[in-house]
Amino acid sequence: MVQNKPNGKTAETDGRHADPVTDAALDWFVRLLDTPTDPATLAAYRAWREGDPRHARAFDRLTEIGGMPELRSVTLAHRSTPPAPVRQARQTRRAWLGAMAASALLAMVGAHLYPDLKTRWSADHRTDTGERRELALPDGSRLLLDSDSAVTVAFDGRERRVTLLRGQAWFDVVRDTARPFRVAAGFSEVEVTGTAFSVRSDDQEDSVFLERGRVTVRRPDDPGRAMVLAPGDRLTATALGLTMQPRPNPAEILSWRDGRYAFHNEPLAAVVATLRRHHPAPILLLDDRIAAERVSGNYRLDDPLGALAALAGMVGARMTVLPGGITVLR
Rank of each mutant, 00 (worst) to 15 (best):
L285A: 03
V74K: 07
N298F: 01
G224H: 12
V228I: 14
A150T: 03
A226P: 02
E131K: 01
Q204Y: 04
S147Q: 00
R126C: 03
G15L: 06
P82I: 13
L275H: 00
W28H: 03
P82G: 08
R120N: 06
R126F: 13
L33P: 06
D19S: 07
F263L: 04
W121K: 13
P39F: 13
Y45C: 00
V190H: 07
A273P: 05
T129C: 15
G316H: 07
A24K: 02
A226N: 01
R318E: 12
L308H: 00
P246G: 13
R142G: 10
E159K: 09
P6F: 03
S296T: 02
A104K: 11
D139E: 08
V271I: 06
I326M: 12
A123D: 13
P323C: 05
A44T: 03
T81H: 13
S73V: 14
A150P: 02
T75S: 12
H78M: 08
P180M: 08
R289G: 15
E205K: 01
T13Q: 07
D27Y: 10
R330C: 06
L106G: 09
Q204N: 07
W48E: 00
R182N: 07
G313Y: 02
P115K: 09
V295P: 00
V2I: 06
F171W: 08
G8H: 03
Y114T: 15
T152F: 09
T41M: 11
R79Y: 08
E70Q: 15
V173R: 04
S207N: 09
F155R: 05
N249V: 11
L284Q: 15
R277W: 14
L105I: 09
L301R: 01
S207F: 14
F59L: 15
Q91R: 13
K9S: 15
D302T: 05
T119S: 07
T41E: 15
L32Y: 04
N4F: 07
P304G: 00
R90T: 10
G15Q: 02
A89W: 14
M108Q: 11
H264K: 12
D38Q: 09
L117Q: 07
Q168T: 14
A102F: 13
D60S: 14
A84M: 07
S149R: 01
D156W: 15
E189N: 02
H112Q: 11
P53T: 03
D258I: 03
A169Y: 10
L284I: 06
D202N: 05
P248E: 10
P282H: 08
S255T: 02
P6M: 07
H55C: 03
L311I: 02
I283T: 01
F29T: 01
L117M: 09
R212Q: 10
P280V: 03
T238E: 00
A237C: 02
D202F: 01
R87Y: 14
T193M: 08
V2A: 12
E293Y: 08
E252S: 07
R126E: 05
V217G: 00
D34M: 06
S141H: 10
V190I: 15
G67Y: 08
S73C: 14
Q204E: 13
